[in-house]
């Protein structure tokens, strides 16, 4: 159960953005992605999660083991907190683990419709989804957007103790320090050259 990325090239809208990205993550390890806006963090994470095809290179990870999370977290305003979580648990073949509500301080809000939550509470609910789906490789795109300091710590604690501590893997694009003992990968050196090949326009140039 490890993540192995070799010489990965990714494209956004058919144009190469990153190339020759390589890294490894063993169980229990996290990797923080850094780089200026537009460098391709989201594209890389979406490619790793299998939402878009890689332009080149290899991604090795066990089948059906990864999950993707961005700030759009698929929370339905009309469903309650527990209904939202129970749905994602069931889609992944499991049941709602009540402990997750405590981890993200949602226990008091459990029967509130998600539409009545504050932005920060909604984000906590979105992140709590990661705790109920039982996936071991998480690709997280700016997971702490609109969280306050206490909530960031809550999430970091969950990630360290409940996920990485249990042998999980996380690749995180974030601009704040989560307090994880994780190596950082700056993506700036991997930006694709302006004349990089492999894009969908290549045949026309």
């Amino acid at each position: 159960m490890s993540l192995h990325v070799e010489n990965l090239g990714v494209a956004r809208g058919g144009r190469p953005v990153l190339e020759a990205v390589s890294f490894d993550c063993a169980p229990g390890e996290a990797l923080v992605l850094r780089g200026p806006n537009g460098v391709g963090k989201t594209t890389l994470l979406r490619t790793l999660a299998g939402l878009q095809p890689a332009m080149s290179g290899d991604i090795t990870l066990p089948e059906d083991s990864s999950a993707y999370a961005s700030h759009a977290d698929g929370i339905k305003a009309q469903l309650s907190v527990t209904e939202n979580l129970a749905f994602w648990a069931a889609v992944h073949g499991g049941a709602l683990d009540e402990g997750v509500l405590a981890d993200f301080d949602l226990a008091a809000l459990r029967s509130r419709p998600a539409g009545t939550l504050s932005a920060g509470q909604k984000r906590r609910l979105g992140l709590a989804r990661l705790g109920v789906i039982g996936r071991s490789v998480l690709f997280l795109d700016e997971p702490t957007v609109s969280l306050d300091g206490a909530a960031v710590k809550m999430f970091a604690d969950w990630l360290r103790d409940r996920h990485l501590g249990q042998g999980g893997i996380a690749v995180i694009a974030t601009h704040i320090d989560l307090g994880l003992e994780a190596p950082t990968l700056d993506l700036s050196p991997y930006v694709a050259a302006p004349d990089a090949g492999g894009g969908s326009d290549e045949a026309f140039l």
Partner: peptide, 15 residues
């Protein structure tokens, strides 16, 4: 589901 991001999450689910 597309607007609130549920669709990519469903796409990466076992379903």
């Amino acid at each position: 589901d597309f607007e609130d991001g549920a669709l990519p999450l469903l796409a990466t689910s076992p379903l």
